[in-house]
């Protein structure tokens, strides 16, 4: 099982698209180190031949008809957009 020291918080924050301050990196690193230390005891459990549970009551293959249905109007869908123009969401330039 991994050691808590392996938590490279700068790297993980980048993966999570989360900009942390230096103070947050230090504090969260310390707090999560304690949590990860607690979690290490899971290594003691014998999990050989145990199936993983993604859900308590696995349900498979829920199909829906591929039929058009009434949906949100453009106005409703865009009501919460931070910036919009011509029925589109505006974002910073993605492609040069």
């Amino acid at each position: 099982m991994s050691q808590p020291t392996e938590l490279n918080i700068e790297h993980v924050a980048r993966l999570a698209r989360l900009r942390l301050t230096a103070e947050e990196e230090e504090r969260f690193g310390r707090q999560l180190g304690e949590v990860l230390h607690h979690i290490e005891q899971l290594a003691k459990v014998d999990i050989d031949h145990v199936e993983p549970a993604a859900h308590a009551f696995p349900i498979f293959n829920i199909w829906a008809e591929d039929a058009s249905q009434p949906a949100l109007s453009v106005e409703r869908a865009l009501r919460n957009a931070p910036a919009q123009r011509d029925q589109m969401v505006v974002v910073p330039k993605v492609v040069d």
Binding site: S2, L42, A43, V45, P52, A53
Partner: peptide, 20 residues
């Protein structure tokens, strides 16, 4: 994240089975 998935997430899912 890559390298930790099996040790943490997959293991936890298996322990979840035992808890259930």
């Amino acid at each position: 994240s890559s390298g930790y998935y099996d040790a943490f997430y997959l293991r936890a899912q298996k322990v979840r089975t035992l808890i259930r």
